[in-house]
Design a protein around this nucleic acid. Structure first.
Lengths: 340, 340
DNA sequence: CAGGAAAGCCAAAGCGCTTTGGAAGACTCT
DNA sequence: AGAGTCTTCCAAAGCGCTTTGGCTTTCCTG
């Protein structure tokens, strides 16, 4: 059942039927009712391929997925996706993942924009002066950045959490508890979130005249194993930290294991605070010693970004507003006063 | 730059240019070279919207993503996606995720097929007599099932791992080590993989005249917390098992924690084997006691399924061949002879 | 050298929708 | 009553590609 057939059986032109269905004003309400009625009765659904050829609208939002045999997709992605998908569903949006060589995402962005394959895109895990952000900005496709980039001469729309503030709070608490040697086990410090977290920690330390020793900060891919190794390295050095801030729950697993392997305890010998993106399958309260966390649901971020993308597509949102969400500091058993 | 312009500047018809570009035989090789040359020089890329309207081909593979506020996407998904994406990239395929109400995926399948939004789909986490499989089979769109369904009067193409064999091997090893009371902490037993794993364990036990006690098998969503709870329940009952087979590494984290909480040790008091889908961020060899596993890379499965989907789309693969991959049993420190 | 086959190209008809540019009729106003 | 204004609808022109059917021209073959 296509438009031609439908309009023919209604003895109307395709124009009128199309307009009636799409809510244009220049059609009699009586006629519109007849049309909508017939459309529903015959289960007419406009062919999206035809529609997108005619209008350029696709009803899809795009994401360029970095791939490669040695490229791992962040497990956070799936949780983000839950939120995004949940919102997208309610607005009949689909998500298209365009796999790209991790070292050349630019080509793919250009392709999906030039081909009009999606109505909007989002960008995640941005770095300072991220080329992808600059690119989509000049390409002129609606977009939202999940996280922040920095150092552009233009503004852009983003949704981020207050990583700086979160880790500032975490570190401040530790300092208040008497800790003087803090360490930070961070994610990839080429990414903005990691940079922000580090400055948050530094700011808290500075407020008490302390610093973050060079050997007290690590930047690694956020795996359990790297959390373990980093912790071993930290705790086996001469001026071992008495408290650690850790950028992910998965790494925190490794931290806990390392501490145990060394015959130490949490929080007796070491206080630990980790960032929790709120996974359903791994919860900080279920660590052997309940883990203090800076908590922010990445799933909600996914939903929010879908919402903003939808708004931008339909023209309801414009401009370059950035929003920064506060992060909860949740204190549990893994922090205590500094030993000694 | 569109076809019209390109053909005009070559003084050829659109027909000839189109055919030259698409490798049709009825065009002079000399001409073809000229055309391809000009196309490359001017960066001509056929408009996919137009092409799909004309051909019905989209260059996309589809996946219906169950969503809902209380629906969690399996973290395995992201790893599967890595493999799928990596292959898809090399074949210029995109993946479209169509979010659907978890309780009504059928509508979405019908929509994406009726609208010709994708060239093929894959289905994951199938259950016996899975309605989705029956549906896509009748809808006539190329598809591959990741995993297996059962109880149909038709065959269908799938790629699965030998869950039955894997857990049979695992259980057999435990029995050989003298264990008499095994337990299984399984995933959702409405899904085929879980059913297969359970029968694998049962078969191994039966071979030695043993059985899997009703209270020795749990079926839960695969989270750390559920692994913990299940283990507590198992070990605190009167005829506690001396060995556990566990369906996921994440649950195994909970198992380990529970064992520790109870003041027991692995493998002294309890032997443990878990299934490992091979995540980069959580490795069995890095458990405090290195974990024995049945190992099968879900990432490779993703790549394979992309490969088969691509083959089906281009007509290179037909029929309903199912393939079942063997699973490695990797023995590490978490298994030992039965205590006592 | 005639006749048929093959090679190489083209015009035009789709694919199914949206949108432009009217046109006809009804209605209002002076 | 004539002029202007809405209201309501339509024919047709895209959107940019593929593909059908056919038309020349060239190449064999007997």
């Amino acid at each position: 059942m296509n438009l031609k057939q439908l309009s023919h059986m209604l003895s109307l032109s395709q124009t009128t039927v199309s307009r009636a269905l799409n809510g244009y004003p220049e059609v009699n309400e009586e006629t519109r009712r007849r049309v909508m009625d017939a459309a529903k009765r015959h289960g007419y659904r406009p062919n999206p391929s035809a529609r997108r050829l005619a209008t350029g609208k696709t009803g899809m939002i795009g994401y360029v997925l970095p791939t490669g045999t040695s490229v791992d997709i962040d497990p956070h992605f799936v949780e983000f996706l839950s939120g995004l998908g949940d919102y997208a569903r309610s607005h009949e949006l689909d998500l298209v993942l365009s796999p790209a060589d991790a070292d050349d995402q630019e080509t793919t962005y250009r392709r999906i924009v030039a081909n009009r394959q999606v109505d909007a895109v989002y960008i995640s895990s941005p770095r300072p002066a991220d080329r992808r952000v600059a690119l989509v900005n000049t390409l002129g496709i609606p977009f939202i950045v999940h996280g922040r980039s920095e150092g552009f001469d233009f503004d852009y729309p983003f949704t981020d959490i207050d990583n700086e503030g979160a880790f500032h709070e975490a570190a401040r608490l530790l300092v208040q508890l008497g800790h003087r040697r803090l360490a930070l086990i961070n994610g990839d410090d080429r990414e903005t979130f990691a940079i922000h977290r580090e400055s948050g920690v530094r700011r808290a330390l500075a407020a008490s005249g302390l610093t973050l020793g060079e050997r007290h900060v690590c930047s690694v891919v956020m795996t359990e194993e790297n959390g373990y190794r980093a912790t071993r390295r930290l705790l086996e050095q001469s001026d071992a930290p008495t408290a650690i801030a850790c950028s992910s729950l998965i790494m925190a697993l490794g931290v806990v294991r390392a501490v145990r392997d060394l015959g130490l305890t949490i929080p007796g010998d070491l206080s630990l605070i980790a960032h929790d993106d709120v996974f359903p399958w791994l919860k900080p309260e279920n660590f052997s010693v309940p883990l203090s966390t800076t908590r922010s649901s990445i799933r909600m971020a996914g939903a929010r970004i879908a919402e903003r993308l939808a708004a931008r597509i339909s023209g309801l949102e414009e401009g370059a507003r950035g929003e920064v969400w506060p992060v909860d500091l949740v204190v549990r058993g893994s922090v205590a006063g500094a030993p000694g």
